[in-house]
Amino acid sequence: MFANYLKIFIRDGFRFLWRNKGIAFASVIALAVALTITGFTVVFVNSGNQVVEHLQSQLEINAYVSQDVSRLDALELSKEIEKMPGFSDLEFVSREKGIVLLQERFGTEMDLESTLGGVNPLPDHYIIRSTSPEMVEPLVTELRRLPQIENIVYGKEIVDNVLSFTFWARNLGMFLIFGVMLAAIFLIMITIRLTVYSRAQEIRVMKFVGATNWYIILPFFIEGLMIGLFGGLIAAGITFAGYQNVMEYVLLNIAFIPLEYDYPRLYMTLGSIVGGGIFIGALGSLMATRKYLKV
């Protein structure tokens, strides 16, 4: 009996879809458009976040300790720095380690020690990270108050750019996603309600011949599920193609943007788009059908 029912539900789901292909097509397109915009927004915000993360990882404050300060006093400084507002972590780089790191950066082509005549000109220094880009400036101000610190190097412009970019990308992204999703759900509700309305008589007859509520709902549910699935798949396809093309363009033409292909995250986004489509379609069907069940 269950198999008989299942056959009917799947047959009717497809049949409804086919017989109302006009409205169904409109629903699929509306959902696809909404999900594509959402997909692009998510991918854009993700890429923006990637850039922000990259830039934030470079937001290090290099505080150079005066050469007159002894190693012990230089190490003691960390206790004061750790108490500063906005402090996240620090790393002490001794002048000996500094020269090794510098040598690593130059590679084997140049022997730094012999070039410098056996003298290490580097001071001890701290690499300090702040809790957030906003806290870089206050932290630097505090560090300047320490007489033992001779020089401070950090990317002021980078900080400012990162700050404005983060703010812009995150807030506009969230705003856009929220607005578009709301519009999408609204559209689906209207279209599915239209579909159900066109079948109000069918539902009425179903009730008269003794159909149970779940028997009536399931084909509509499957129809909604399929509209959602198709809309989601189209949107995922467009988002995928769009991502490929935009990334290719950016990587070739705007090389200074630190962006990389992030497929795991892209696939997660595409999966969410398809899943979201199915969810919206099914939920829309259920909400639209409920109203017509009170015959």
Binding site: M1, N4, I8, V205, V209, G210, A211, Y215
Partner: peptide, 11 residues
């Protein structure tokens, strides 16, 4: 057939 499908009969 509609009235029989509702009852769950086979094709």
């Amino acid at each position: 057939a509609f009235a029989l499908e509702v009852v769950g009969l086979g094709q």
